[in-house]
Design a protein around this nucleic acid. Structure first.
Lengths: 161, 161
DNA sequence: ATCATTGCAAACGTTTTGCATTACA
DNA sequence: TGTAATGCAAAACGTTTGCAATGAT
């Protein structure tokens, strides 16, 4: 801690205008959700949850969230960002999306939906589950069951618009 | 070179029974394909191509192919395996498949098809394009065009068979 | 006070790169 | 022979881990 926050004496409650950990119902819900998932609502988890869930559906990588946290004066280490993203995923608050072998994206939308992936821009966009339809599935191998069906519509910019 | 092959004097043509670079029509086709793609049919590229294309559809990672090459007495470095896989991909001989954030898979099947992905076993299996059907696509964003649609059916082993 | 959580730095596995050596055409 | 391709080792990259310090309950 004390990354960008001035080190102070002892137990000084956050006076910051950025996020005080207890101002809105979103934060209340989040703290509740975290407790329910067996996760202590610590400063870092609430801070990251606030960044993730307060502004609609998002697709973030660990690095992106880490930088955003730094900008937003949410003191957190990169290792904790990774840990937290995975804990949130286990808790069902996030979905992991694999579109590109190099980075891992996390999606705050955990509902029924799929993805556009803009190639060369590394950008993800949601496709509502109702706007796409996977007809006929193939036979599932013996002893297996479907965990999930992911559809990724890869897009590229048209050569001449 | 000379990784597992005994170092010899000069310009000894391969006496090996494993792959002599000019024995079958598959190799002929491959050499032709490579030339057509602007890739010199070097020993390593032909050797790797032979491993990749001579035994039906395959899903390999760089590491897997590297180890297989070593076992098959195709002397090649890991860096060259990576380079070659990407060159083959550019040439349209392979397709890159992103299912898991950590490793990159390459698929020798470049036709119309999708994939089963067996979670926890890191195993890929083809689904023929005719056995799956993506009905209704969503509206494509302005100025964009579809490069490809990937469907990944994630499977897990049933709890009780 | 206790124990989960955090931060740091170092380890990790995969992939890429720089450059001298090799080999195809 | 000239130039592309290769091998090696080292760097880069995203991610995970071990352990001492911290903080929530």
């Amino acid at each position: 801690m004390a990354l960008t926050v001035p080190a102070s004496s002892k137990r000084v409650p956050q006076p910051s205008a950025e996020w005080n950990g207890d101002s809105g119902c979103l934060v209340h819900n989040l703290r509740h959700k975290l407790r329910h998932a067996g996760l202590r609502p610590t400063r870092q988890r609430v801070g990251l949850g606030w960044l993730l869930f307060a502004r609609g559906d998002r697709h973030v990588t660990a690095e992106m969230l880490y930088e955003e946290a730094n900008r937003s004066r949410v003191p957190v280490s990169l290792a904790t960002v990774y840990n937290t993203l995975h804990q949130f995923k286990e808790a069902g608050l996030l979905r992991e999306v694999a579109v590109d072998g190099s980075r891992t994206y996390f999606d705050t939308n955990t509902g029924d939906h799929h993805h556009f992936y803009i190639e060369n821009e590394n950008q993800l966009r949601d496709i509502d589950g109702a706007h796409i339809e996977v007809g006929r599935l193939p036979d599932i191998p013996e002893g297996m069951e479907v965990s999930r069906v992911d559809v990724i519509v890869r897009l590229r910019r048209k050569i001449r618009p």
